[in-house]
Nucleic acid binder design. Structure first.
Lengths: 174, 174
DNA sequence: TCGCATTTGAGACGCAATATCATTCGATGA
DNA sequence: TCATCGAATGATATTGCGTCTCAAATGCGA
């Protein structure tokens, strides 16, 4: 096969930092509690642990990997609860769900962080994050033209990275 | 749950026109045959039928729906072959795979057509296509900055459509 | 502290997509 | 035209993400 925008393996990597007590005092946690309260939902230990685990992530992560992280941290949370809570965290505006491929969905923290878009190398699967104010301005302008109220966006550029292009000569087509 | 970028039901619709003999004389078909030849792949009746069915589509479609179309047209093609051929058509630059949700993937024809980006209403699931030259220019500029060779892109804006905003007052939050 | 609606967890389930593999077939060269 | 062989097909099994079910547990307002 030749040039394509199909995604190849290898997307995220675990990225656990060692912030010891992110949860109860974290301002993002306050946002979540406020959201839960408004929606008449409950603040449970499971939800706190899941929020904490997501805040330890940098960049993209996937639900199954997050569940694995929680298990590794010694927390026993069911997969179903992870999925349910990620949905709430998204609704609370803390996470953004990202669709890169048809295997699974990914999430990234947006609360208090610069949100990114991605260059994806279709040859190596490597991701490059970037952020563009002009893109955001263009987004808002397009929304205004359509009377649309933007919540989030995804901008993915598929292509060939410089490294892949360099290595390309040897292995014929791909 | 409240505002979110999760996608709701209802995406594509069948769009079968009655072009009687699109396949063998279609220039897109020539592109496909050239691609297959270069890749030492074979031009089979199944592949011809699948290409033909995709060219009858306007806008987004999904593999299962395409398989259903083929069956409705009286063509017996296995699902596996549909999936395999769609991948080749993408590699040939005729189709583009689009990721809107974590349920399934979608495709759209790009050969000889203006490629679109989408506004997605998170409340109704409605899609609005748009096309922006400024976006394409911005994309190319970003790629140049990173030494990236672009193949395709996806730009999805999630938000609230004017109609949904109008209906919003009544149904509490969400 | 009580009561109840919400949440959780374990497992079953649905479904898109892929893998397997025996059989069939397209395309090349003679 | 025919033989040859690698590639393609189809039927089926399999995988894995995500959701659903429901009994038991629990947060939280009164």
């Amino acid at each position: 096969m030749a040039l394509s925008a199909r995604i190849l393996p290898s997307l995220p990597k675990p990225n656990v930092n060692t912030n010891p007590d992110a949860t109860p005092f974290d301002p993002v946690c306050a946002v979540f509690r406020r959201y839960l309260h408004n929606e008449k939902l409950k603040f449970t230990p499971e939800r706190a642990m899941i929020l904490d685990a997501t805040l330890r992530k940098e960049g993209l992560f996937d639900p199954e990997g997050l569940a694995a992280d929680l298990k590794a941290l010694g927390h026993r949370v069911s997969r179903a609860t992870v999925y349910r809570t990620l949905a709430h965290l998204q609704d609370a505006g803390i996470l953004k769900q990202v669709f890169f491929d048809n295997k699974q969905s990914y999430y990234e923290v947006i609360a208090g962080r610069a949100t990114n878009d991605y260059l994806i190398c279709v040859s190596t699967g490597k991701l490059i994050e970037f952020s563009s104010d002009r893109l955001k301005a263009l987004r808002d302008e397009i929304c205004k033209q359509h009377g649309f109220e933007p919540i989030s966006h995804q901008f993915h550029i598929f292509g060939i990275s410089p490294e892949a292009k360099a290595t390309q000569g040897k292995s014929k087509s791909r």
